[in-house]
């Protein structure tokens, strides 16, 4: 009786085990193949982010000291430094002008092209072309174009403006609006990308939807306002995220155009100076932590949102 009861139990367990082994056998090789990457991402992304935060919470203000734990002291202390305020304000102005500029220009170019025009491929190729070049290389031209020399020393835009009677300007050396000028090369570089995103977005709107709205008596503007624009929201969000995170960590462009000058300082350049000129790892790590946090605040919700959306569909 007990034997009979045990037998099916044992058989069941055996079958379960067998199934489990087979399941494991099917997915284990996959896991092993990805394992090196999991370890690498674990160590180099998450481990090092953690290490950086840890370093930011120590008093390792030179390269030899051990570094005692000091909590959030560095994070608070940074706000006592005038240069930090300058670089944060610069980053904000740069971000606003760059993100809005690239978004509006990119959208506008896509809007002009979305119904299909002759030579579309050529137009697209030209607008996108700056993306293939490094910020360092284009920074060299833009430094020349936005040279602050005036009168007979003027080159670049100032020379051109003088010739057509427009006022000359200090460009990125302007104490108030310099960072707005600094955003121009970035807009030039990235708006083609935004155009391509929006163009794909426009093309993704089914023609039947537009037709249906027209039949319902919508004007062309009404079709845009009520049909096309709402459907472009996901693309706009993607573009915002991409431009925003490029903007908050902008480094190459600033260095190429003006070097390490305070007049165009941003957090990423300040961090570079803290590491290589001030030789202060804890300060560098603190600035880096702030850059990471400023990006994470909007990227993490975005990623969670898009993964959920993908799973739903």
């Amino acid at each position: 009786m007990t034997g009979a009861r045990q037998a099916p139990g044992r058989a069941c367990r055996a079958r379960l085990e067998e199934m489990l082994v087979r399941r494991v056998r099917t997915w284990l090789p996959g896991l092993l193949l990805v394992a090196p990457s999991i370890v690498a991402i674990g160590v180099f992304v998450y481990g090092m982010l953690g290490w950086n935060f840890r370093l930011a919470m120590t008093d390792k203000h030179d390269e030899v000291s051990e570094g005692r734990f000091v909590g959030l002291e560095n994070f608070i202390g940074l706000w006592d430094q005038p240069r930090w305020h300058i670089s944060v304000n610069h980053a904000i102005m740069f971000t606003i002008v760059f993100v809005l500029g690239a978004l509006v220009l990119g959208w506008f170019l896509a809007f002009l092209m979305e119904k299909g025009i002759r030579g579309e491929g050529t137009f697209r190729a030209i607008y996108l072309f700056p993306m293939a070049i490094s910020f360092v290389a284009t920074g060299i031209v833009w430094r020349w174009l936005m040279n602050s020399g005036m009168e007979e020393r003027a080159v670049g835009f100032n020379r051109l403006f003088d010739a057509i009677g427009l006022p000359q300007w200090q460009w990125f050396r302007d104490p108030d609006w310099g960072m707005a000028a600094m955003a121009l090369p970035a807009i030039w570089q990235m708006s083609g990308y935004v155009m391509a995103l929006f163009l794909a977005g426009f093309r993704g709107v089914p023609e039947e939807l537009r037709e249906a709205a027209r039949v319902d008596g919508c004007t062309e503007w009404g079709v845009y306002r009520h049909v096309v624009l709402p459907l472009l929201r996901p693309v706009t969000l993607s573009a915002l995220i991409i431009l925003g995170h490029i903007s908050l960590k902008v480094f190459d462009l600033i260095v190429a155009v003006s070097g390490k000058q305070i007049i165009t300082d941003v957090p990423a350049v300040f961090m570079w100076v803290a590491v290589f000129d001030s030789h202060d790892p804890a300060k560098g790590a603190t600035i880096a932590s702030y850059i990471v946090l400023s990006v994470a605040v909007f990227v993490i919700p975005y990623l969670i949102w898009s993964v959920r959306k993908e799973r739903r569909s």
Partner: peptide
């Protein structure tokens, strides 16, 4: 998903430990 976040991190955040 954890990989994806690695795409967006500002590399400044790992530079000193690296």
């Amino acid at each position: 998903t954890l990989f994806l976040f690695g795409m967006f991190i500002p590399y400044q955040g790992v530079m000193i430990p690296l």
